[in-house]
């Protein structure tokens, strides 16, 4: 029974990682940028949602505003930060991205204070149970949201003309452009979707913990970087699998080796072990 509960807990955390890491791997696949500031956008989503939810009394309204707003913020990050330095060596964008992430965290601290915001009425805190197995409402919603949104994304990527053009752009941007694909539009949509997914993950985490704080993106930022390396940089399916795998391994690790190793360090132990055995990641990049 414990095993089953740990697996479920792992899949819940894995769903959250997946929502965030997919965006990161999409950005990497398209632009070869390690988009560390993704985690700053994630936190922004939680702040917008909590402020609007508390002002209006509606979490749904908060989410409905926060997700597209963060999508737009992601597009702005591309336009203002990355686009001007795309022809520089990759570490330039990496440093810029880390810089932006730090600035964002400090800005949240200055504007919203260091102690964080809570929802004036907690949402989805009740427990749903099937027999002896149970999870909080927000946790169930996390899994549903991850599954639903990522399935929708996969359908759009496979079934629509624009989705096909998007994947062609990832595969060979110059060729795609020469066939008439608007590769700049692909980039904007890519950032919008990636950032919106991160915001939705952040809102659910905020609801789950009933806390939004300036540094809530820090731990996810490095864990999702580890995940996309494990998943084979740019490989979406690999990233999803690595997200769930890390979630489950952390859940088990907390119980079985938690006395030796902090939960957040388990991700790195896992990363180091995998990279020792398979330097290309669990799933080779394309």
């Amino acid at each position: 029974m414990l095993q089953l509960e740990l697996t479920i807990q792992g899949l819940i955390n894995g769903s959250m990682y997946a929502l965030m890491a997919v965006g990161l791997t999409l950005v990497y696949g398209l632009l070869r940028i390690l988009h560390v500031a993704h985690a700053g956008l994630y936190t922004l989503g939680a702040y917008i949602a909590v402020l609007i939810a508390n002002a209006s009394g509606s979490l749904l309204l908060g989410a409905a505003v926060a997700i597209p707003a963060v999508g737009l913020a992601g597009m702005a990050v591309y336009r203002l930060l990355y686009e001007p330095i795309l022809d520089r060596p990759p570490y330039v964008a990496l440093i810029a991205s880390i810089g932006l992430f730090i600035v964002m965290e400090e800005a949240y601290r200055l504007v919203f204070g260091p102690y964080g915001e809570t929802f004036s009425t907690p949402y989805l805190a009740g427990r749903l149970a099937i027999g002896p197995i149970g999870a909080k409402g927000a946790e169930v919603l996390m899994v549903i949201a991850a599954f639903g949104l990522l399935t929708l994304l996969a359908l759009l990527a496979r079934r629509t003309r624009f989705g096909v053009a998007w994947r062609a752009t990832v595969s060979d941007p110059a060729m795609a452009r020469s066939f008439g694909v608007d590769t700049i539009k692909v980039r904007y949509v890519n950032f919008f979707v990636a950032s919106g997914l991160a915001a939705s993950a952040a809102i659910l985490v905020a609801v789950l913990n009933n806390l939004v704080e300036p540094t809530m993106g820090s731990v996810p930022s490095y864990k999702t970087l580890a995940i996309i390396v494990l998943g084979g940089l740019g490989n979406v399916a690999g990233t999803l699998a690595a997200s769930l795998a890390l979630g489950v391994i952390e859940a088990f690790g907390t119980i079985y080796i938690g006395h030796l190793l902090d939960r957040d360090a388990i991700a790195f132990l896992f990363l180091v072990l995998v990279l020792m055995i398979r330097p290309q990641g669990l799933f080779a990049a394309k």
Binding site: R161, V164, R167, A168, S171, G180
Partner: peptide, 19 residues
């Protein structure tokens, strides 16, 4: 040839006709 290697034959054709 520079095909879009991960895309199916059908999808390669779709991109070819994008204009």
């Amino acid at each position: 040839r520079r095909l879009f290697r991960d895309l199916s034959v059908r999808e390669n054709l779709v991109v070819g006709g994008y204009v």
